[in-house]
């Protein structure tokens, strides 16, 4: 059964190639998305867990201690990936919101809702690990510098989206309102982050530079990159799992979900 709202308004094929276009159509169909995400997860989830384990063991056990911070710096292997992915997650959420607003695609709305709690959790993790790292390094649990503050603001932005979604009884309107709010937040994030440059802080300037010379040793950098990649994959896995639950919840009265459950009972 194909309902009208799975369709997206036709664009000329010169803009998107025909294959791409049918892929986009399929992306809007809950049963297809449910099955493809299941297939992706079957591979991605074990890879993610293995990469997380390797990165963590490599970073924590097999890198040299920092000459000034000793062993305490090793929390970087949790702190940096979670902050990087927390920020990227907001953009994923906002872009999904934009897609759901522009093309009225229900599955984009599901994707947006799936991002918010994961992003909030990662932001919280980044703040907690930063605070634990701050105690031995700066001698205090909490410093009001720009980067810590902007992560805190990011947490507020995430929580605002979640709170707005919960406040609406009409979940269709809730999705749209959250999409608008997350887009507003997306415009504001660079403004908030730019305050890093102006705001006096105890926080060191960024150590990883892709353009200039890095001030962190490469032997410490490889496990860090692995952890960042693993956290991205973890975010994707969690997002897909959240989406699958939400798809089942929304489609619980449709035939394909009933058939799916029936089949699982008999397997």
């Amino acid at each position: 059964m194909r309902r009208a709202y799975y369709l997206v308004p036709p664009l000329p094929n010169c803009i998107i190639a025909p294959d791409m276009w049918s892929f986009f159509h399929k992306l809007g169909s809950p049963p297809w998305l449910y099955s493809i995400s299941g297939a992706i997860l079957r591979w991605l989830l074990p890879i993610t867990l293995v990469a997380l384990a390797i990165g963590l063991v490599w970073g924590v056990l097999f890198t040299a201690p920092d000459f000034r911070q000793g062993n305490s710096y090793r929390i970087i292997y949790i702190h940096v990936p979670s902050s990087v992915v927390a920020l990227a997650g907001y953009y994923v959420m906002a872009l999904a919101g934009a897609v759901s607003l522009i093309w009225k695609m229900k599955m984009a709305d599901v994707a947006m809702q799936a991002c918010a709690p994961i992003g909030a959790a990662l932001t919280f993790l980044a703040l907690i690990t930063g605070s634990i790292w701050g105690k031995p390094t700066w001698g205090t649990w909490w410093v009001w510098d720009a980067r810590v503050t902007s992560m805190l603001i990011l947490l507020f932005l995430y929580l605002g989206v979640i709170a707005l979604y919960e406040a609406y009884d009409n979940k269709v309107a809730a999705g749209k309102a959250c999409a608008v709010l997350s887009l507003v937040g997306m415009v504001n994030i660079p403004i908030i982050y730019k305050s890093v440059d102006w705001w006096y802080s105890l926080h060191q300037p960024a150590s990883i530079k892709f353009t200039g010379e890095s001030t962190i040793d490469t032997s410490m950098l490889y496990p860090l990159f692995l952890m960042i990649a693993a956290f991205y994959a973890l975010f994707t896995c969690c997002m897909l799992m959240n989406m699958r639950v939400e798809i089942l919840r929304r489609e619980s009265s449709t035939g394909w979900v009933k058939r799916l459950l029936f089949r699982q009972e008999h397997d």
């Binding site: 507020f156 929580l159 605002g160 707005l164 406040a167 709010l181 937040g185 504001n188 403004i191």
Partner: peptide
Amino acid sequence: LKRGGMLISLLILPLYMP
């Protein structure tokens, strides 16, 4: 929304910070 008052501060205060 009926209970907008508290919610609006959660949504907007982060944007006010800059």
